[in-house]
């Protein structure tokens, strides 16, 4: 595990933040961290990179406890509320951060990352004259400067236009191909769905769902059947394998937690003597999953 937490908690006077978070992330993974505003996502990331001190619990990055110099050596971080010394030029800013890492002969590296984030040609402009999107790009370049093993990106595309978002997605994919681990905090569910291998959903400071994205999505497969000549016994049998069973507009609808139960249900329908005219299944999107899980959690709270 390149990143692991055990009951990690950060609260402010017993309120806010997050509580008892247990997460394990393998290296080379793109991990999505989702949650509504104020759920504790940024607090979690700031705790992991050593800006906030945990109230209790433990966490390690690359085997080193968080907040230690050793754990900080191999991480990169793009903060959500990024702000850089705007009196410097882009190149000076990169040089400054390279010097903080004690990187020798950093010029080539700086050129490489300026090129990667498409800021070549703008490196001699003062950062205060950069657009918000350009500042976010240079922040990303800075986060990659030390060749980190784990990169924390807190809303990395919030200030970017659609083209910029695609660029960042490509950079994340390239990082993954290079074996890097990316911890991605984002509101953009479609973005997470496109690039993440695993996700965790946090609400009110608690992780309420976690796992491989594929598995989480397949747990919520929506099925629609057009049938006739059915009886109540059949509905009862289906209810044992599915949930949210309903009969609406001449269609039997239900959800299954495992896609493999769909052929089994179809067989039960046919064996019962009912006529099956049509069967459609649709795996829910991350947005459906998010709304469903967070909505249920809100009901409980």
């Amino acid at each position: 595990m390149i990143l692991e937490t055990q009951n990690l908690t950060k609260q402010f006077n017993g309120k806010g933040g997050f509580k008892d978070v247990n997460i394990s992330i393998d290296s080379g993974m793109v991990f999505g961290f989702l949650g509504p505003n104020g759920a504790g996502k940024s607090t979690f990331v700031k705790t992991m990179v050593g800006l906030l001190y945990p109230t209790s619990g433990f966490a390690w990055i690359n085997g080193f406890p968080i907040g230690t110099i050793e754990s900080k050596r191999k991480i990169g971080f793009l903060p959500e509320n990024f702000k850089y010394y705007d009196w410097m030029t882009g190149k000076e800013l990169m040089k400054f951060h390279a010097e903080l890492y004690k990187i020798k002969n950093s010029d080539k590296k700086i050129e490489k990352f300026l090129d990667l984030v498409k800021l070549k040609g703008h490196e001699n402009k003062k950062v205060k004259n950069y657009s918000k999107g350009m500042q976010q790009r240079i922040g990303l370049a800075i986060a990659l400067l030390n060749d980190p093993e784990v990169i924390f990106l807190d809303e990395p595309t919030s200030a970017l236009d659609p083209v910029g978002r695609i660029d960042v997605r490509e950079i994340i994919k390239r990082l993954k191909d290079d074996g890097k681990t990316v911890f991605l905090n984002s509101h953009l569910l479609s973005e997470i769905e496109m690039i993440c291998d695993e996700v965790a959903i946090i609400n009110h400071g608690h992780v309420i769902a976690e796992g491989k994205l594929k598995n989480l999505l397949s747990k919520n497969t929506y099925v629609e059947m057009v049938i006739s000549d059915y009886n109540s016994e059949l509905i009862e049998k289906i209810s044992k394998l599915a949930y949210d069973v309903a009969f609406k507009d001449g269609k039997l609808t239900f959800k299954v937690k495992d896609k493999d139960s769909i052929p089994e249900i179809a067989k039960i329908v046919v064996d019962s003597g009912a006529k099956l005219y049509q069967l459609d299944s649709k795996t829910s999107s991350l947005e459906d999953l998010f709304i469903n899980i967070v909505g249920k959690d809100e009901d409980v709270c």
Binding site: V49, L51, K72, F77, P79, N81, Y84
Partner: peptide, 9 residues
């Protein structure tokens, strides 16, 4: 917020 980019290093 400039401190964030400095002190995670």
């Amino acid at each position: 917020g400039a401190i964030y980019a400095l002190l995670y290093k």
